[in-house]
Amino acid sequence: MEHNMAQRTASEPITIRTAKVAEIDALANAMDRSRNYIVNQAIERYLEANAWQMERIEEGIAASREGKVVPADEVFAGIAARHGWTR
């Protein structure tokens, strides 16, 4: 991910469970990073993963609407055949 040094930061109060703060601090200490760095990295990764997932879901919905689907039984049969499983 590209980091933009001109990026502005917003100060927003958040609540984190006490046990998680201890885990964040332990990771920050192990990585020689700040708590802020760890939390921001976690948020970035979470947003990236969810954006990717939403794109795949939207693509799947569009494909379904266009009739580009394979019946589930055919998918399962193909997987079973590839692995030598009996159904």
Rank of each mutant, 00 (worst) to 15 (best):
L27Y: 10
I57E: 02
A42F: 10
A80M: 05
T15W: 08
V70A: 00
I16T: 13
S34R: 04
A81H: 08
E12C: 13
P13E: 03
A72T: 14
R56L: 15
A51D: 14
A62W: 07
M54T: 04
R65M: 05
V70D: 01
V69G: 00
I38K: 02
R35E: 04
F76T: 14
W52S: 10
G60M: 06
G67S: 02
A22C: 07
G84L: 06
W52T: 10
M31Y: 13
N4A: 03
T18M: 01
D32M: 09
G84H: 05
T15P: 00
T15N: 12
R35Q: 05
A51W: 12
A77I: 04
N4I: 12
R65S: 01
D32S: 14
W85C: 00
D73E: 11
Q41N: 07
M31C: 13
W52E: 14
G67L: 02
I43W: 03
I61E: 06
H3K: 09
S34E: 09
Y37D: 12
E66F: 04
E12A: 09
Q7Y: 11
E55K: 12
A26R: 15
V21P: 03
D73I: 06
R45S: 13
A19G: 12
N40E: 14
M1G: 13
D32A: 13
W52L: 10
E2C: 01
S64P: 00
N36I: 04
A81R: 14
R17V: 13
I57Y: 04
A30Y: 09
G60K: 04
A51T: 12
E2W: 05
T18F: 02
N29L: 13
E58S: 10
A42N: 04
A6W: 08
A80L: 07
Q41S: 08
R8M: 11
E59Y: 05
E48T: 08
A10G: 06
H83M: 07
A10P: 00
K68G: 00
M5P: 10
A62P: 00
W85N: 01
R82E: 15
R87W: 10
A26Q: 15
E58L: 10
G60E: 02
G67W: 04
